[in-house]
Write a protein that binds this DNA or RNA. Sequence first.
DNA 1: GTATGTGAAGTAATTCACAGCT
DNA 2: AGCTGTGAATTACTTCACATAC
Lengths: 209, 209
Amino acid sequence: MNNKKVPEPVISRLFVYLRELIELTKMNIRTISSGELGVRTNLSDAQVRKDLGYFGQFGVSGSGYDTNELKVALEEILGKDKTWNVAVVGIGHLGGALLAYPGFKERGLNIVAAFDSSKRKIGKKIKGIIIQSIDEMPKTVTNKKISIGIISVPAKVAQEVADKLISSRVKHILNFAPIALNVPEKIKLKNVDLSRELETLSYFLANKK
Amino acid sequence: MNNKKVPEPVISRLFVYLRELIELTKMNIRTISSGELGVRTNLSDAQVRKDLGYFGQFGVSGSGYDTNELKVALEEILGKDKTWNVAVVGIGHLGGALLAYPGFKERGLNIVAAFDSSKRKIGKKIKGIIIQSIDEMPKTVTNKKISIGIISVPAKVAQEVADKLISSRVKHILNFAPIALNVPEKIKLKNVDLSRELETLSYFLANKK
DNA sequence: GTATGTGAAGTAATTCACAGCT
DNA sequence: AGCTGTGAATTACTTCACATAC
């Protein structure tokens, strides 16, 4: 093990390894080499070993990694024994899709609250969750122990919503609004900018040689 | 101007600058410094200048950038005079949300086709687009001149869908399925893994010091 | 022989810092 | 005086390559 700061891309890839290990153990495959795990995840053998090396020594020279052992170790490292409560703010098409997305619950992320500012939507129930007024956010975040907020509102109101989430004591934010949000140092902010991803692809179309 | 290879993060940020410049010109702000543009986009002044430096010299020493001039230059660089046709494969909650997302069309990305394998969905119309069988993909991609495919199907069938898109002559792919896809070198693949983004936030909750 | 773990080397991206222009 | 443009320095991340373990 080394004790250097772990780069965020490493964390992100550990979740990929874990998913693959879950599949492998389901298939009763007991052992895997870094090379084979790399093939399955489109990463290099060296990267697999280096990434794991940030957290310990999990392999056996000459044979590779015990799939179940490594799976358990990664679950421990990544905190997969715990579950987290999540709120979605902005229940438009995207917000509604996030409420319905099965991948979150499977991975220990429970969406337990939904907020919107539209009177037409407040009180309606989607996927078992009643849409609340944004005014109820502080109370609900505390009562339901919500630690992550997802922002899927239009860009013009996204900063305001972020401020409200933070003052309601949410710890981290996943932002889908296409705008740069300002948040305090301690809040981890991740941005997903769908238009930008597509636009980047279009750049390569426009500039193909 | 330098003629080094342009890193992809630079391309991605140019779209951010462009959006901001569109706002600035709307507000009749004629000039902006790299520092001010950086504040508005949460980037450093040096980064703004360096990024623009890949494509030319757009500024005036001592006063900054003419907002309209820079906007026009970026539109040119990024190919914003052109529009592109896009297909969505997999019309579940997420696929449906993407069909309805207004941000794409605003930016010259027109979703012109939708595919699903479910008999129940084929023939239905969403946002003016009739959902087609995946068998019709080759014909439709050609007829409608579709150059980008969006994959929003479950992980188990994502590779199969990617292969079908590629053999239908789609140029680039935006993949929402949480799995590593194999595509030929010439195909640009971008991945958006929603669960992984949320999971990464949960890691920091589990490992907060 | 086969595969790990890890320093060292290499590559990529960001930030610094300042000469030079207006 | 203020701000750009850009080499140089720095930092971040990845790949190499090999000593070591089984």
